[in-house]
Design a protein around this nucleic acid. Structure first.
Length: 295
DNA sequence: CTAGGGTTAG
């Protein structure tokens, strides 16, 4: 769905996109960071700043920071061990997930080994979390080596495990690795799901062969899988690009103090303006100056 | 609420 909305924005059908959103609200298709960001972009380009602000406000309300104080969680965890309390497997996995999400690659790897040493045989969820972390922050090679290790232990990788590795392979243009993984899935009767298909469609789309992308979409539909925005588990909150769109629109309307206000809001969220935002601000100052000279 | 994707700004 978001791919479709993005395409319509590129074709400048802003009004249609906005009306699609009301339809999504009515049919209760869930929104996420992506869909709301695109909506804000449309309002900015239509000059409807009031509407843009109201969506931004909605995002900020929904985007309450998770308390990801992983260090505290870790020390609490070690205290449990010292006191002889055996944490359950899902406690291990929650901590491991926190380490992976905060990109603590080494710590995540060590934590996984610690689980093995303590006789807590990590399950496929634990391995998949670390494999994904390795893919994104270390190397495909390390991720693949962990992958063979879990297969040796007779732990069965699933669709999610394969999706992580396939995405990483394609990102590095290692098409033959991705093909091998896809063959392996087929041999083991592990089905592709909406996320796996999404990864393939995205990659083929970037390669430019739209026919092949269409083929994959057809296969999906034949199997009863519809593209959707569902399944999003993260927090909805504005990022620097969203703020950038709003600030640029305000600058074009010469609403300088409003733009500065937004920057203050960003800083309150711990996001510092980048070069794109400074460029927007500099242009408006240049324009104001020109008006001043003309008068 | 135990693991995976995509999107928009000068």
């Amino acid at each position: 769905m978001n791919q479709l909305l993005g395409a319509m924005v590129r074709m400048k059908h802003y009004v249609i996109v906005v009306s699609l959103y009301s339809q999504m609200e009515l049919t209760r298709v869930s929104h996420n960071t992506y869909s709301l960001s695109i909506l804000i972009d449309c309002f900015c380009k239509l000059g409807q700043m009031g509407c843009g602000f109201s969506v931004l406000g909605k995002m900020m309300k929904l985007g309450v920071e998770p308390n990801s104080r992983i260090a505290e969680a870790l020390s609490l965890f070690h205290k449990m061990l010292e006191e002889g309390i055996q944490p359950h497997l899902h406690v291990y996995n929650t901590i491991l997930n926190g380490l992976c999400k905060t990109k603590k690659v080494d710590a995540a790897g060590r934590f996984l080994c610690m689980m093995e040493d303590r006789g807590f045989e990590p399950n496929i969820i634990a391995y998949t979390a670390v494999i994904d972390c390795f893919c994104k922050n270390l190397s495909l090679k390390e991720a693949l080596s962990l992958f063979s290790k879990l297969k040796e232990k007779r732990i069965r990788p699933n669709t999610i495990t394969y999706s992580c590795l396939i995405k990483a392979s394609l990102g590095l243009d290692q098409q033959q690795v991705a093909e091998r993984l896809l063959d392996e899935m087929e041999d083991n009767k592990i089905l592709l799901d909406v996320v796996t298909y999404g990864i393939l469609v995205d990659w083929i789309g970037k390669k430019g062969s739209l026919d092949e992308a269409k083929n994959i979409m057809d296969t999906m539909r034949k199997r009863g899988i519809e593209p959707s925005t569902a399944g999003f588990r993260g927090y909805i909150k504005p990022n620097i690009v969203v703020y950038g769109m709003i600030i640029d629109a305000l600058c074009k309307l010469r609403r300088f103090s409003d733009a500065l206000n937004i920057i203050q809001k960003m800083r309150n969220q711990g996001i510092e303006p980048n070069v794109v935002i400074y460029n927007s601000l500099m242009r408006i100052m240049f324009l104001i100056n020109k008006d001043f000279i003309a008068e």
